[in-house]
Measured scan of single mutants.
Amino acid sequence: RPRTAFTQNQIEVLENVFRVNCYPGIDIREDLAQKLNLEEDRIQIWFQNRRAKLKR
C-alpha cells in the first residue's frame, strides 16, 4: 500500500486528540476516521507511530 499523506488539517486534529488521549479506543478512532476521511487502521498506525516518536 502507498504511504498515506496526511493534510495539515488532519495532523492538527490528530495531534489535538493525542494531547488529550494517546491511547484512543476504537470508537474514537472510527469517529476520527469518518471526520477526517481516512481509514481507521491508518489512524491506529498514526497513534502507534506518534507514541513511538514521543518516546524518542
Rank of each mutant, 00 (worst) to 15 (best):
Q48F: 03
N49S: 08
R42F: 06
R3Q: 14
V20A: 11
R51V: 08
W46P: 06
I43K: 05
E12N: 09
K35L: 05
E39D: 15
A33S: 10
E15R: 05
Y23P: 00
Q44M: 10
Q44G: 08
L32H: 02
F6Y: 11
V13C: 09
R1S: 05
A33C: 09
V20R: 10
K55H: 07
V13T: 10
E15T: 02
L54D: 11
P24S: 01
L32Q: 05
P2G: 15
Q8D: 10
T4Y: 09
D27G: 11
I43D: 03
K55C: 07
Q8V: 13
E12M: 04
D41M: 09
I11P: 03
N16F: 00
R3W: 03
N49L: 09
P2R: 11
Q34S: 08
R1T: 05
I11A: 06
D41V: 10
E15L: 02
N9T: 10
A5Q: 15
Q8C: 09
Q10N: 04
A33G: 08
N9Y: 12
V13Y: 02
G25Y: 02
R19L: 01
I11L: 08
Q44E: 04
D27K: 09
K35T: 13
D31N: 13
W46H: 04
Q10R: 03
E12L: 08
V17Y: 07
N49K: 10
E39N: 08
V17R: 01
L14Y: 02
N16Y: 04
L36D: 01
R19Y: 03
L32T: 05
D41F: 10
D31G: 09
N21M: 11
Q48H: 07
R51Y: 01
V20N: 14
T4I: 12
N37S: 05
N37E: 10
I11N: 13
R42Y: 12
T4D: 08
E39C: 10
D27M: 10
E40M: 14
L38H: 04
Q10M: 12
E40G: 06
K53D: 11
P2W: 11
L14F: 02
V13I: 15
L32A: 01
P2Q: 15
I26A: 11
N37I: 05
N21V: 04
G25F: 04
K53M: 11
L14V: 01
Q34K: 10
F47S: 02
Q44V: 09
V13M: 15
N21A: 00
D41Q: 12
F6R: 03
R51T: 07
K53T: 10
K35D: 04
N37W: 01
N16C: 06
R19A: 07
P24V: 01
T7W: 01
R3C: 05
N21K: 02
W46G: 00
I26K: 15
Y23H: 08
L54M: 08
V20P: 01
E40N: 03
R51W: 02
C22L: 10
T4S: 09
I28Y: 07
K53N: 07
L14C: 13
V17H: 05
E39K: 05
I28Q: 09
A33Y: 06
E15K: 00
R50V: 02
L32R: 01
Q34D: 08
F18I: 07
E12F: 14
R29M: 15
P2N: 15
N49D: 12
Q48E: 10
K53L: 11
D31Y: 09
K55M: 09
V20G: 09
Y23A: 12
Q10L: 02
V20Q: 13
K35Y: 06
D31S: 11
E15Q: 02
Q44I: 13
T4F: 12
F6D: 03
D41Y: 12
E39Y: 03
P2E: 15
A52F: 06
P2I: 15
L54T: 11
K53Y: 05
I11D: 11
R50K: 06
I43A: 05
L54H: 10
C22F: 05
P24E: 03
N37M: 03
E39W: 02
R19I: 07
E30W: 12
F47V: 01
Q44F: 06
G25K: 13
A33V: 06
C22G: 09
Q8Y: 07
K53G: 09
P24M: 01
I26Q: 12
Q34N: 08
A33L: 00
R3S: 09
G25N: 08
K53I: 09
N9L: 12
Q8G: 06
D41I: 11
V17N: 00
E40V: 08
W46L: 00
L32W: 06
E39T: 12
R50M: 06
F18K: 01
F18Y: 10
K53C: 05
F47G: 01
I28C: 04
C22M: 15
T4Q: 15
R42N: 12
W46R: 02
R29T: 14
I43Y: 01
N37D: 09
E15S: 01
D27L: 07
N49P: 03
L36G: 01
R50T: 08
N16K: 11
F18C: 03
R50C: 03
Q48P: 03
Q34R: 13
D31W: 04
D27S: 14
W46Q: 00
F6C: 03
R42W: 13
D27H: 05
N21F: 01
F6W: 06
Y23Q: 08
I45H: 09
P2V: 15
I45W: 15
P24D: 03
E15V: 01
D41K: 09
R29S: 02
L36V: 00
L36Y: 05
A52R: 08
F18W: 08
A5R: 13
L38P: 04
E12G: 04
L36I: 11
L14M: 07
R42E: 14
K35M: 06
A33W: 02
P24G: 03
L36S: 01
F6V: 09
Q8K: 09
R50I: 02
L54Y: 08
R51Q: 05
L54K: 10
F18G: 01
A5K: 15
F47A: 02
I28L: 08
I26D: 07
G25D: 11
C22Y: 12
T4G: 13
I28M: 03
N9E: 14
K55R: 06
I26H: 14
N21L: 01
N49E: 15
F6Q: 03
R50W: 03
R56M: 13
A52T: 14
I11M: 03
Q10E: 07
R29D: 02
L14E: 01
Q8P: 10
I45N: 14
W46K: 00
P2Y: 15
A52H: 11
I43C: 01
A33E: 01
T4V: 12
N37F: 08
A52D: 11
D27C: 09
E30Q: 10
R56C: 12
R1E: 14
F6E: 06
Q10A: 08
K35Q: 08
Q34F: 01
P24I: 03
D31C: 05
L32F: 02
L38S: 08
V13D: 02
I11G: 00
Q8S: 12
N49Q: 10
K53A: 09
L38A: 09
Q10C: 01
R50G: 01
K35N: 07
R51D: 14
R50Y: 04
T7M: 07
I26Y: 09
I45K: 14
L36A: 00
R3M: 14
K53Q: 14
N9I: 13
I28W: 04
I43L: 04
R19V: 09
E40A: 12
D31R: 11
N21S: 05
N16P: 00
N21G: 08
Q34P: 03
I28V: 12
I26P: 12
R56P: 14
L38T: 13
N21H: 04
L38V: 13
I45L: 11
Q44Y: 04
V20M: 10
A33D: 00
C22H: 15
E40S: 09
P2T: 13
